[in-house]
Design a protein around this nucleic acid. Sequence first.
RNA 1: GGCCCCAUCGUCUAGUGGCCCAGGACACGGCCCUCUCAAGGCUGAAACAGGGGUUCAAAUCCCCUUGGGGCUACCA
Length: 497
Amino acid sequence: MTSPIPPVRVRYAPSPTGIPHIGNIRTALFDWILARQTGGQFIVRIEDTDRSRYDAAAEKAIFESLKWLGLDWDEGPDKGGPHAPYIQSERKQMYIDAAERLVESGHAYYDDTTPEELHALRERQRAAGQPPRYDGRGRHRSPEAIEESRQNGLPITIRLKVPDHGTVSFEDSVRGKVSFELKEIDDFVILKSDQMPTYHLAHIVDDHAMGITHVIRGDEWISSTPRHLMIHKALGIEPPEYVHVPLILGKDRSKLSKRHGATSALEYRDQGYLADAIFNFLALLGWSPGDDTEVMSRDEIVRRFSIDRINDSPAIFDSEKLEWMNGVYIRNMDADQLMDQILPFMERPESEGGLPDTVARPIDRVYLKRLIPLVHERLKKLTEATETLDFFFADNVSPEASDLPGKKMDAEMTERALTAALELCKTAAPFEPEHLEAEYRALAEKLNMKPGQLFSPIRVAITGKSFAPPLFDTMSAVGQKRCIERISNAIGILRAG
RNA sequence: GGCCCCAUCGUCUAGUGGCCCAGGACACGGCCCUCUCAAGGCUGAAACAGGGGUUCAAAUCCCCUUGGGGCUACCA
């Protein structure tokens, strides 16, 4: 069903100005999938041409996100490659050369308009009810005038000459044909006064030099694509295939932002989501295989992915569905894998969601391994392990008196249940789940209670919670000694309450 | 404001003119299973934004309206 296409060269080109959010990472995901599917290359390039917004922590987070999701790259800043360097600030001269070449060929010109003049121009246009647009005044500046401004230390930029009439159009892989009127586009800056290129120039020079075949990027770039086409034309080079993918929106339909809670891949990692689940979920946000399959391995996604099945419309990030899918992935793991994943979360400090600090680290792996089957299918997120398992590790628990009675039970009946449960607990042997269950069921009958009525107070007494893993597995794992202590403690709480 | 993009259940989506009084999944309700909570099974409610065309036939094609989003920087 997927039309086989020749090997692609695709790149993820984030700017290190902030932690990449999930929508941004999804384009990297699509890049990676396509590269792996076609046997092509996935390239990472850092677009740090805005020196004022550079953030080293953001750059670190970019690579950490990719690594966590398993999106390995073939060429990049750390790995090098045939087109190194892969950091734009280190490629500065290439852009300067390209811009100057465009000036020489008459496609671009030096402009000495100051920011203040530009601002004033826009204000005037706005006041007159006109769209703010650069008026092309620099086109008429003589070389001498530019040189004089340069001598005087005025900022000089290079702008592309955009024809004032005509149409540009291109065939987008997901949108189809998109057209723009050139009269809507002004002469835009390609080389800033600090000699750094703008995004427009830089990415085109690089994509061409690096042999990029498909530019996969967010929808927000679609309106600047005509500018990119004009640069290609001026440079005399062929544009790549454009793949504009729909944006990912938050619950309120606005662009995903901090207000919507977690937005970066790393935050999801820290909240106990699995990389495979995020991978699967993200792939399905804006793409679908065409049938009802939802849970798919990486291999299956790589095999079935195709650009023409990418959706046109923006998607809202549904965290509830993500949580469900994460649960599916947890259930599909084997016990050892799950234990490895859970351990670091449980060993975090108590203040960060780990077990109480009174529980010794490292956690007893042998004991934990025994507990995994009891909670395996109950977990949706790795972070939940702490709260579902804490009572196994604690010395004691403190249930509320009001939580102890089961359905249709008063305090007297609850006390009777616990007292009898305590006696049986002292004598029960072996302290194994099946045996315990048989004994306690018999006890319920003897007490003329429903099994659930007897079990309920015991559960709360032993776990401190009204819901927990199956009672007799739990009791067996907690151990006879602690069970006796906890039940008698609960009786005390009940009497006091 | 101008330009561009988008529009199927609350959400993610299937649907590329007849197979659709629209299928799946999450979430939600009911039932079953059951010692609680899960998991699992069955089941229910829930959508083609509106209006015009084109056609024997439209969720699917065209136009308009409405709504949402993006861009409009010497940011990416």
